[in-house]
Simulated scan of single mutants.
Amino acid sequence: MVDSPNMADLLETDDPGFQHVLSCVFGIQNHESRTYLVLLDHPGSTVAELAEVLDRDRSNVNRSLTTLMEKGLANRQRRLLDPGGYVYQYTATPLPEAKGLLHDALDTWVETVHERIDDFGPDSTV
């Protein structure tokens, strides 16, 4: 089952919540947007810590984090452990910056739609 909302879903929703907007605009799945929101409240978390909070498998959380990093919604830092080795800690992109990314992505989409409308005419292809 795919739970990745798209722009059409957003346009058809009368009162979308922030998580729904996040999923639609960035083309991410609902569990990925949920991971972002949880990460906002748990900065510096490891995959294992997030998996426990989200009640999800670590491999799934790791994939969600990879997607969030690709979209610019999360960052990863390596922390050295005293007995040796390291662990990755993840932090959400601050909410004001994420909102800016959302606005930019949505503005780009709207501009493209306006261009398609303006370019349409008798010589256009459907």
Rank of each mutant, 00 (worst) to 15 (best):
G84D: 09
V126I: 14
P16S: 13
T35M: 02
V25I: 15
E115H: 15
V25E: 09
S59C: 06
D3L: 05
A48V: 09
H31I: 07
H114A: 13
R116Q: 13
T35D: 01
R76H: 05
C24R: 08
L54M: 15
D15F: 08
V47K: 01
D55C: 04
S45A: 13
V87H: 03
Y88C: 06
L95T: 07
E115P: 01
L54I: 02
N60S: 14
A48Y: 03
Q77W: 08
T35V: 03
T66C: 04
E111P: 00
W109E: 13
N62R: 10
L80P: 01
L10F: 04
L22V: 15
T46L: 02
V113I: 14
G17D: 11
D123Y: 15
H42R: 01
D57P: 08
D3C: 05
D41W: 04
W109M: 11
D107H: 11
L54W: 00
L11E: 02
T112A: 14
D14F: 10
P94Q: 11
C24V: 07
L95G: 02
L37A: 07
L54E: 01
N6T: 07
P94C: 07
N62I: 02
D14K: 10
P5G: 08
A98C: 10
A92E: 02
F120Y: 11
W109P: 00
L11A: 08
S45R: 03
L68D: 00
C24Q: 06
D9Q: 04
G27L: 10
H42G: 06
N6F: 13
D55F: 01
V21Q: 12
L37T: 06
K71F: 05
D14E: 11
K71D: 05
P16D: 12
V21R: 11
Y90C: 02
R58S: 05
N30H: 09
E111D: 13
I28V: 06
G72F: 02
Q77D: 09
D9S: 04
E32N: 04
S124F: 02
L65T: 06
S59W: 00
L73C: 05
R76I: 02
S4K: 12
A51D: 00
F120D: 05
A48S: 12
R78F: 06
L73Y: 02
Q19W: 08
A51I: 00
G85D: 06
M7T: 06
E70F: 01
L11K: 04
F18C: 07
R78K: 15
G44H: 09
Q89H: 11
I28P: 00
Y86H: 07
E97V: 03
D57K: 06
I28S: 01
H103V: 15
L54K: 00
N60K: 06
T125W: 08
H42D: 07
F18A: 15
Y88P: 00
D107N: 13
P94I: 05
V38R: 07
V2K: 09
L73S: 08
